[in-house]
């Protein structure tokens, strides 16, 4: 097996997290924001895996499973909301108009 350094993996996780956050903050399209959140979740998952590998513990993968279910639920609900908004007359999916709450 290869001997990748868990520290480097954590570095990658950090980078992915920062990029995801950049996407969440900078993009106005709800769909793209959701995708960026997926990247952030992936980064978190990677951090757990790397930590598990660093300390030879299976708990890292347990937490990974938790994150996985969380991501699945989040994607389902988030995409449902997006579809709903789209069909309710907001085809632009502009996140900044979310404060209008209506129409």
């Amino acid at each position: 097996m290869s001997a990748a350094s868990p520290t480097h993996a954590l570095l990658l996780a950090t980078l992915l997290f920062a990029v995801g956050m950049l996407g969440v903050l900078a993009r106005r399209n709800l769909l793209l924001m959701l995708m960026s959140i997926e990247i952030m979740l992936n980064a978190a998952a990677l951090a757990f895996i790397a930590a598990g590998a660093r300390w030879h513990a299976a708990q890292g993968q347990v937490m990974f499973l938790m994150i996985l279910s969380l991501a699945a639920a989040e994607a389902a609900v988030g995409l449902a909301i997006i579809l709903r908004l789209h069909s309710a007359g907001r085809p632009t999916l502009d996140a900044d108009t979310g404060n209008r709450l209506k129409g």
Binding site: A9, I49, A53, G60
Partner: peptide
């Protein structure tokens, strides 16, 4: 792939 290389 990264996970795999990390032994998971």
């Amino acid at each position: 792939g990264v996970f795999f290389t990390l032994g998971a």
